[in-house]
Simulated assay, not measured.
Amino acid sequence: MASEKPVNRPSVRHPSHNHPLRVFKARGEDEIICSGCELELTGLAFKCTKSECDYFLHKSCFDLPREINHKSHTDHPLTLLHSSPYGQPYTCDACGEYGSGFNYNCSECQYDVHVGCAFIPETVKREDHEHSLTLIYNTPCKGRDDGTTFMCDLCEETMSENLWVYYCKECDYGTHVHSCPVYEAHKPKKREGEASSEALRMQSLMIAQDELAAMRIRNKIKNSVIHFGDEPRYKWVYD
């Protein structure tokens, strides 16, 4: 009896992994962790074609640009790294949390940002505050010599002066970018005591995917359309 031919599924390569990857549809009940951003895998993704290899990537992580110019670090571009450059977990200079997966890095300054943090929106709106909050790349107290420190208005914890803050200057109101529920009005209620930072960084990666799609559209039309006004927030650089 003739044996069935094996299914020839298309595969792709990614520089972060030695084996080919294939398209994978993640379900919420799978509870799989993305090897790039280290957050729960959701939606369209990629997995290693080797059955014994437990490597998965969000599509948004797969598509991240290799280099970006970011407003938080204007002296040098940030390069996408697929692991910590220090041989141990790095500390994100945006949110202050640890990471060991993908990150945007300036080797000259040892500046590191989670890939999700790199694409958080520049303004957000909270239902419990009348004004929009603007992203700033250090606390308003940075550089003061009178010993004043900045306190998050949600969790009431004192913040390092170099951490990013969502801030309303008019009210002197500010919050952490991730460890406090900035997007609470836009996500399901969580059980008491359940951490929210991973969900928020995952939402940031989805925003990153939208940014990348918009970037591709801009690249297609930039040679035929004259642009007026401000430059795009990020300048993407590809090899």
Rank of each mutant, 00 (worst) to 15 (best):
92 C>K: 01
81 L>A: 09
51 S>H: 07
54 D>S: 14
67 E>H: 02
41 L>E: 03
36 G>H: 06
57 L>C: 12
55 Y>S: 07
92 C>I: 05
92 C>E: 02
51 S>A: 13
78 L>E: 00
83 S>H: 13
78 L>G: 00
72 S>W: 07
50 K>Q: 13
44 L>Y: 09
50 K>W: 05
37 C>F: 09
35 S>H: 03
63 D>W: 03
82 H>P: 02
68 I>V: 15
93 D>V: 01
85 P>H: 10
50 K>H: 10
63 D>S: 13
78 L>Q: 00
52 E>R: 05
35 S>M: 04
89 P>A: 14
40 E>V: 05
44 L>V: 05
62 F>Y: 15
37 C>E: 06
82 H>R: 04
46 F>V: 01
53 C>H: 11
42 T>W: 09
59 K>L: 14
74 T>M: 14
56 F>Y: 15
87 G>F: 12
52 E>L: 06
46 F>T: 00
49 T>S: 14
92 C>G: 04
31 E>W: 08
41 L>N: 01
71 K>M: 12
70 H>I: 01
69 N>K: 10
74 T>F: 01
73 H>R: 03
75 D>T: 10
31 E>K: 13
88 Q>L: 12
79 T>H: 05
40 E>G: 08
45 A>P: 01
85 P>M: 12
67 E>P: 01
32 I>F: 08
54 D>Q: 13
77 P>C: 10
77 P>T: 04
59 K>N: 07
41 L>S: 02
90 Y>Q: 04
35 S>T: 05
39 L>C: 12
61 C>Y: 06
33 I>Y: 03
34 C>E: 11
73 H>S: 05
39 L>P: 00
32 I>Y: 04
68 I>Q: 06
89 P>M: 14
77 P>S: 10
90 Y>T: 03
32 I>A: 06
76 H>Y: 14
77 P>A: 12
